[in-house]
């Protein structure tokens, strides 16, 4: 993350993107058109993410946060605005930005090892031996070394999401995009996975964009938490979480931050109880 010495005060277009900005979302808007109505999903969203930063995006269901993540991944095209990754325009999905989905996305025709190998097989710079070694390493990292040849349906929900995490981490992406990855899991499993994510972040220094509707999850994982409002989706407030890591979701200070985010959201949604 060493910032290169700029060759004097540079002028012109290229200087608008600083090298430390891993990811820039620049004025992104998105509308969904159906024959009956047009939904304004995202309205002029701009985010800058530094290398190694963990950004959490929270908001009520249907505020467009998953759409925003799809656009960052390159799976969906924005109607206006653009996304830059390392200063380059994102026009299609690429393995520099890998995604962990909320829905089960592991391939049932492959076992755990095969799923982790899938992304590695698409890395032409690696030899076969390097791929196998990397797959073993990441499966060990998530603690499933005894389940390498288990079939997907034999795993619990938490194990599946761990494998999905390993599959996304193994090809060594610059940015990890996580779309409510733990939303469908029970609280105990989730807390384990918070520790896993924090440990992996500490060891690898990945840039992470994490979408959730859980305030404490956001306060636990994020360096910064961005609060989104719905229809149209806008970033309405940003919170810095300057707590030391690793964090526990039972930490009183952390709960305080989560409460502040929840209050802000409640203010926006007019007294309703946020999810």
């Amino acid at each position: 993350m060493s910032r290169k010495d700029p060759q004097g005060p540079s002028k012109g277009v290229s200087s608008t993107v600083l090298p430390a900005n891993k990811l820039v979302v620049d004025g992104v808007s998105k509308w969904f058109r159906t024959p009956r109505t047009t939904v304004h999903a995202l309205d002029n969203i701009s985010i800058e993410v530094s290398a190694g930063e963990v950004i959490c995006i929270v908001g009520p269901s249907g505020c467009g946060k998953s759409t925003l993540l799809d656009i960052i991944a390159g799976l969906t095209k924005p109607d206006t605005g653009r996304v830059l990754a390392d200063g380059e325009l994102v026009i299609e999905p690429g393995r520099q930005r890998l995604m962990v989905f909320q829905e089960p996305s592991l391939f049932p025709w492959l076992d755990v090892f095969g799923n982790v190998m899938f992304g590695l097989n698409l890395c032409p710079e690696l030899t076969r031996a390097e791929r196998v070694e990397t797959a073993h390493r990441f499966i060990a990292l998530i603690g499933l070394e005894n389940f390498e040849h288990a079939h997907v349906h034999e795993l619990s929900g938490g194990m599946k999401q761990r494998v999905a995490l390993a599959r996304a981490l193994a090809p060594d992406p610059q940015v990890l995009l996580m779309d409510e990855p733990f939303g469908a899991l029970d609280a105990m499993t989730r807390e384990h996975l918070y520790d896993d994510v924090q440990r992996i972040w500490h060891d690898s220094g990945k840039t992470i964009v994490f979408v959730t509707h859980n305030m404490r999850e956001a306060a636990c994982l994020g360096d910064r938490v961005l609060l989104m409002s719905s229809s149209p989706g806008r970033i309405v407030q940003a919170f810095d979480i300057p707590l030391s890591r690793p964090r526990s979701i039972y930490d009183a200070e952390l709960v305080g931050y989560a409460a502040r985010i929840a209050d802000a959201l409640r203010g926006r949604t007019g007294g309703g109880v946020p999810e």
Binding site: P93, R95, L122
Partner: peptide
């Protein structure tokens, strides 16, 4: 076929014939 499979594969760089 759940569309999630194709989406997950595309983020990993799979396209076309692969």
């Amino acid at each position: 076929i759940p569309p999630i499979y194709a989406r997950a594969a595309r983020t990993m760089g799979s396209r076309g014939l692969h």
